[in-house]
């Protein structure tokens, strides 16, 4: 039990400092900073970036999971893809930024190839790799693997008997997918989608390594706030931003648990 305390205390302090400022007082000034147009824009950027990459990641990842359905869970194909997914989803971070600089950076392989072969300049309207737009591809690159990891077990749990029962009862392939598989999978799919959203929203390493200047998304703004305390002329902006992030995460998690309890109607 002493262990529980040891774990809980730092976590609580971490959350606590997010809620209150360093002096220990709860000041509305801090919270008011969240209303600043600059901050609002950052949250908006973070929001659409996370939403977009979560949706794309979820759809593409689900397609990969579907393709893997027939493969043996302990066969070489599955173990290789599982491990690759693990690396890209949880380990990539900084290194994914390098990978995309090497791919679609100004001197990137794909950039040069498109320019030299098709005369296509992907940076015609300015270099977008180091802006929020540039984060889309790297983010998708770790969102898809995360989807594979989280969604595969749900897809695996579809019983072949359901498909067979559907067939013997006179159902078609379409009726199997639309009346059985999709409804059964929906809670897990949306759950994974929310997880992906949260993952992108809180991701820092890739963006930090790619974007050294500016703070287009919330985690980068926290970096700026931590490194220069006087940003926007407000103290403890980092705390306020952290609070904002926690609120967003809390909403996502509430959505998640609401979904779970809705699904619990027919789940154990």
């Amino acid at each position: 039990m002493y262990v529980l305390l040891f774990l809980a205390v730092p976590t609580l302090i971490a959350i606590g400092t997010g809620f209150f400022d360093n002096t220990g007082a709860f000041t509305l000034v801090t919270v008011a900073a969240l209303g600043d147009p600059v901050v609002l824009t950052t949250f908006f950027n973070s929001f659409w970036l996370s939403a977009l990459t979560a949706v794309v990641g979820a759809v593409v990842g689900a397609a990969v999971c579907y393709a893997l359905l027939g493969a043996r869970p302990d066969g070489p194909l599955r173990t290789t893809i599982d491990s690759l997914s693990g690396v890209l989803a949880q380990f990539g971070g900084v290194m994914l930024a390098f990978a995309f600089v090497a791919t679609i950076g100004i001197q990137g392989m794909v950039t040069l190839y498109l320019r030299d072969t098709f005369g296509l300049d992907i940076f015609e309207n300015g270099v977008w790799l180091y802006s929020t737009t540039g984060l889309i591809l790297p983010y998708i690159y770790f969102q898809v693997p995360l989807m594979i990891i989280t969604f595969m077990p749900a897809l695996q749990a579809l019983k072949p008997q359901w498909a067979e029962a559907n067939a013997t009862l006179g159902g078609s392939t379409a009726s199997y997918w639309f009346r059985i598989a999709f409804p059964v999978l929906a809670p897990s799919f949306i759950g994974s989608l929310l997880l992906l959203f949260a993952n992108a929203f809180s991701s820092y390493a890739t963006a930090a390594a790619l974007v050294s200047q500016g703070s287009q998304i919330v985690p980068l703004q926290i970096r700026a706030a931590l490194t220069s305390e006087t940003l926007l002329g407000r103290e403890n902006l980092a705390g306020a931003l952290a609070l904002g992030m926690i609120v967003v995460m809390a909403v996502v998690m509430l959505g998640y648990s609401a979904l779970q309890s809705r699904a619990a109607r027919w789940q154990q």
């Binding site: 976590t11 971490a14 997010g18 949260a198 991701s203 820092y204 926290i222 931590l226 992030m245 926690i246």
Partner: peptide, 12 residues
């Protein structure tokens, strides 16, 4: 559910 970046703010 707690982003590392938020944890940093608390940990500093």
């Amino acid at each position: 559910t707690i982003p590392a970046i938020v944890l940093v703010v608390g940990l500093a």
